[in-house]
């Protein structure tokens, strides 16, 4: 019983502090895809931050990451649209476009 109790209080503590942190510091960034380039080659962000990947080209892009830290596949979407990725793990990610492999950027997620 005692064990459960301490686990429970720890849970409360963790969620509480995370939400405080989240409110205080979470940022959202915009990275555009234009002329087959990402607007940033390298972006340093914090755990919990998010990036909107916005297509500014008149053809489709398909942003993805197969990194160990976190992987995602945003699918293909046309000009003007964006999709948001929340980065919730620490580490370095290679983000690429599946259609145009020369499009590459690094997202560095720190605590």
């Amino acid at each position: 019983m005692k064990k459960y109790h301490s686990l429970f209080s720890m849970f409360i503590l963790v969620t509480f502090s995370a939400s405080v942190l989240a409110e205080a510091e979470v940022k959202s960034y915009v990275v555009t895809q234009k002329e087959k380039k990402f607007s940033e080659e390298k972006l340093k962000i914090k755990v919990g931050d998010s990036i909107d990947f916005k297509n500014d080209d008149p053809w489709f892009h398909n942003v993805f990451s197969l990194s160990d830290v976190q992987n995602f596949d945003l699918g293909s979407y046309p000009k003007g649209q964006f999709k948001t990725v929340v980065f919730n793990k620490e580490g370095k990610l290679d983000v690429e476009c599946a259609i145009h492999p020369q499009m590459h950027m690094v997202v560095e997620v720190t605590k």
């Binding site: 398909n62 993805f64 197969l66 699918g75 690429e96 599946a98 259609i99 492999p101």
Partner: peptide, 14 residues
Amino acid sequence: GRFAHRKVKVNKGA
């Protein structure tokens, strides 16, 4: 095609 080298859905048959 490309899917053999980058396993992302859009690459299947690309």
